[in-house]
Design a protein around this nucleic acid. Structure first.
Lengths: 182, 182
DNA sequence: CCTAACCTTTACGAGAACGTGAAGGTTGGC
DNA sequence: GCCAACCTTCACGTTCTCGTAAAGGTTAGG
């Protein structure tokens, strides 16, 4: 959906940037529609150093490639789903950026020793990201646990009541108590 | 911790300015230190309609009771740990408020039928809260999963390398791979 | 009764995260 | 070559979430 302007991107495009025949480069408006952000937000993220477009057109238009789009989705996810501040996101992205650089470097070297340390570095960065995310999850989980405890408390009273009030066939029975914990 | 404030049925004490010897009422500064918020934030939350002090002194000082403290902790948790906006929190608190009202009503009625429906209502509200929290957890978890997948990918390459490079005693061995999933 | 510590309301300030023009250049179909 | 649509860089406006005085009341201890 949202195939708005089926703008046929340049074919031969003698642009300075890569041959770029693989993934189309998107202008800011298209990119914004792709990921669900406003152009202004994307520019703002750039201002904040969260990302830079893969290229610029001759007229200085920002051009985004697939990696950029992924990165924007990552940012949006962190912002919307996790509620991280752009500063937090910046931290997580530093690792993400480094990871990308490492990936590129990795594919360029044949030195096994270097490859090995690059891998270790990459893993360490991912671990840091995971740790950040997990600490947030843990805190959320503890809130769920607290709520669940209150729920159990209430259920206790309920059982008590049902016990006293004889065994009436509960019309509301089967109330999904999809508790889970971790 | 976090005993659900086993609220005492409030003996007699019908007057406005009670003798207040049961649970001490805290002034804003004391309350703020208790929960780790600034007085300003607490007043702001009041402005936003997130809570109201249980009472006011003759000189109009805000006086907070145990329930208020619990509510403030709840707000702080939502804000800091979950990253919810005060608007989101307001939504969650509507359920929390109703829960408190229900609790009070519960202790006042002897009608088993009413008690029962009050309990069911309370449980339903808690379930909504849990659902909200859990959906956030799930989204965060999926991000962790994605990161973990990348990590495994890198570890695969690493094993590959270590396989090729013979078995050199890894000085960095024992790199905790505390993965967990859910 | 006096005073220090605390409180009240009111109001202006600030940073984060954008929204919204203004003024002008670029792209691309016709 | 022309025009609409899109883009650029300022630059100021806005909302949210408080911080920080300012100008006074209130409380509790001595």
């Amino acid at each position: 959906m949202s195939l708005t302007t089926t703008r046929r991107p340049e074919a031969g495009a003698a642009g300075a940037a890569t041959g770029a025949s693989a993934d189309r480069l998107l202008r800011i408006q298209e990119a914004s529609e792709e990921v669900g952000l406003t152009p202004r937000s994307i520019r703002y993220y750039e201002e904040r150093g969260l990302l830079e477009p893969a290229a610029r057109s001759e007229g200085a238009y920002r051009l985004y490639d697939a990696d950029d789009i992924e990165r924007l989705r990552f940012i949006k996810g962190l912002r919307d789903d996790a509620g991280f501040s752009l500063n937090d996101i910046g931290q997580l992205l530093e690792d993400e950026t480094a990871r990308a650089r490492i990936g590129a470097r990795y594919r360029q070297t044949a030195d096994l020793g270097e490859r090995r340390s690059l891998l270790l570095d990459g893993i360490a960065r991912i671990d840091r990201q995971v740790e950040t995310l997990r600490s947030k999850i843990d805190r959320l989980q503890s809130m769920v646990d607290a709520a669940t405890a209150r729920r159990q408390h209430l259920e206790g009273h309920l059982d008590e009541l049902d016990g006293k009030a004889a065994a009436a066939p509960d019309p509301d029975a089967g109330r999904g108590s999809k508790l889970a914990s971790r």
